[in-house]
Write a protein that binds this DNA or RNA. Structure first.
Length: 437
RNA sequence: GCGGCCAUAGCUCAGUUGGUUAGAGCACAAGAUUGUGAUUCUUGGGGUCGCGGGUUCGAAUCCCGUUGGCCGCCCCA
């Protein structure tokens, strides 16, 4: 192939793909604003240390990082969380609580591209800072649901699985595990669904034998799928801390149920998200058919703002990506066809008619309508064909007869009906028709 | 970072045991068509067969390398 090609894992957005992306962004932005979240943005390039502080030095292998001309170690952002923590942390004292922010941004990860995972991708991030209670989880999970339901997806299409790292640590501690052991076990639990028993190999190598009896208890806990099941499994422990935790669970589930969203949520302790910085509830959204990777993920990270050098600020957040979401919409036939289509296509008889049409075209455009017309003289038949193919809802016909009568013929493309309106009433007639759609 | 499969026009693909100027459908453009739509017909543009090297009288075809894509592993913030 002559010339150049884009870098591996990076995409060109031709207008067709761009319009699909815009549809996804618009749906997310609408959802976020409806829930009272405020939009922000930040630099694409950040100090490398911002990411290594949060995720450890090993993360550099997965980053687009380099030394800039001033000798600074920098990296393209692989995620938004450290950045938003920095921004919120820097002004933590001045921001009204709760702090509800969202962003739409592009991220970069130096990894092998796969289905649903590229090196450059877009994510919607939503976070709530300054609210330690489960009300923040309710708010975020409701937003996540709307970020998918907004496309027309239903509880038949996706499910959010809710889990809790605090509860896992409590349970593992009660079974006699030390904190490092519990961390190792959570990694195994995270992989169990995919790898089966092999998931525990790594744990055994580091921490030694895992008694069959204990493992059976862990696996039983992992398989709990309801709040009642959780309560039953934990009934024997009867501690105050646990009671508070279970009360939070009840709040989250009843809150979402009160919103009419119960069908979108499942209790699923097999989700733990490998990341050590999550501190409480964690959740992931999945395609129900299950042939895609996770659609979205999030959870509570109460220690991270402080770890990055700022105030002790509780936080919950999630991110949803454009790649997997786009694949899902494609699969379900929910990717839109005519995002950028003109609303109106103007059909012009000849040069004299063009002079009249141009005046109206410009006036309609100035009024905010999307209006298209042919540059060159074309046979009427061809113009009607173009009007149909471009997705316009209306055709305005400027022929010799109409001009002579001082009218414009308006054709509704969908049902092929036509009627004439005086030229000076055109804008109102067009608005009435289009707003009735 | 590791393994498997693949690479011919914008897209989907055909191309015989290696044999002249590499094809089709779709898409795009012009016309048939000076007043009514997803129809039809004609014509046209577009490919140094991903790239580089090798074998051969001769390579889209065989071999090696390389780049890219898909799938899996690691990882998945």
């Amino acid at each position: 192939m002559a010339g150049f090609q884009s870098l591996p894992g990076f995409r060109d957005f031709y207008p067709e793909e761009f319009s699909r992306r815009q549809h996804i962004f618009a749906t997310w932005r609408t959802a976020a604003r409806a829930s009272g979240f405020q939009e922000y943005d930040a630099p694409v390039l950040e100090p490398l240390e911002l990411f290594t502080t949060k995720s450890g030095d090993e993360i550099e292998g997965q980053l687009f990082s380099f030394t800039d001309k001033g000798g600074r170690e920098v990296a393209l952002r692989p995620e938004m969380t450290p950045t938003v923590c920095r921004m919120v942390g820097a002004r933590a004292g001045a921001l009204k609580r709760p702090i509800k922010w969202f962003s739409l941004a592009e991220f970069y990860r130096y990894e092998r591209a796969q289905k649903g995972r590229l090196r450059a991708f877009n994510q919607f991030n939503a976070d709530i800072f300054g609210e330690a209670g489960p009300e923040a989880e309710i708010e975020l999970m409701a937003l996540l649901i709307q970020c998918l339901a907004g496309f027309g997806l239903t509880a038949e299409d996706f499910i959010i699985r809710l889990s809790d790292r605090d509860l896992w640590f409590f349970y593992l501690e009660a079974l006699g595990f030390t904190d490092p052991q519990a961390q190792g076990l959570l990694t195994a639990i995270d992989r169990f669904e995919k790898m089966g028993d092999d998931a525990f190999k790594g744990y055994v190598e580091v921490h030694g034998i895992l008694a069959e009896e204990t493992k059976a208890k862990v696996l039983a806990f992992l398989k709990i799928k309801s709040l009642a099941g959780l309560e039953a499994a934990l009934a024997e422990f009867n501690s105050e801390k646990l009671g508070v935790r279970l009360a939070d669970w009840r709040k989250v589930l009843t809150g979402l149920a009160d919103m009419g969203l119960a069908d979108f949520i499942s209790v699923d302790l097999s989700v733990v998200r490998g990341l050590a910085y999550y501190t409480g509830f964690v959740f992931e959204a999945f395609d129900r058919r299950g042939d895609l990777r996770a659609l979205a993920g999030g959870g509570r990270y109460n220690n991270l703002v402080k770890k990055l050098g700022y105030a002790d600020l509780p936080a919950v957040g999630f991110a949803i990506g454009d790649v997997t979401t786009g694949l899902l919409l494609e699969q379900r036939g929910l990717a839109p066809q005519f995002i950028n289509a003109p609303e109106i296509y103007v059909i012009i008889g000849g040069e004299a008619e063009r002079r009249v049409a141009l005046a109206d075209i410009q006036a309609l455009r100035a009024a905010g309508f999307r209006v298209e017309y042919p540059f060159k003289e074309l046979a009427f038949g061809k113009q009607f064909k173009v009007a149909a193919e471009c997705g316009a809802k209306l055709a305005l016909i400027y022929g010799g007869d109409e001009i002579a009568k001082g009218v414009v013929k308006i054709r509704a493309m969908v049902d092929r009906t036509e009627h004439e309106v005086p030229r000076d009433q055109l804008r109102a007639a067009v608005r009435d028709y289009l707003s009735g759609q």
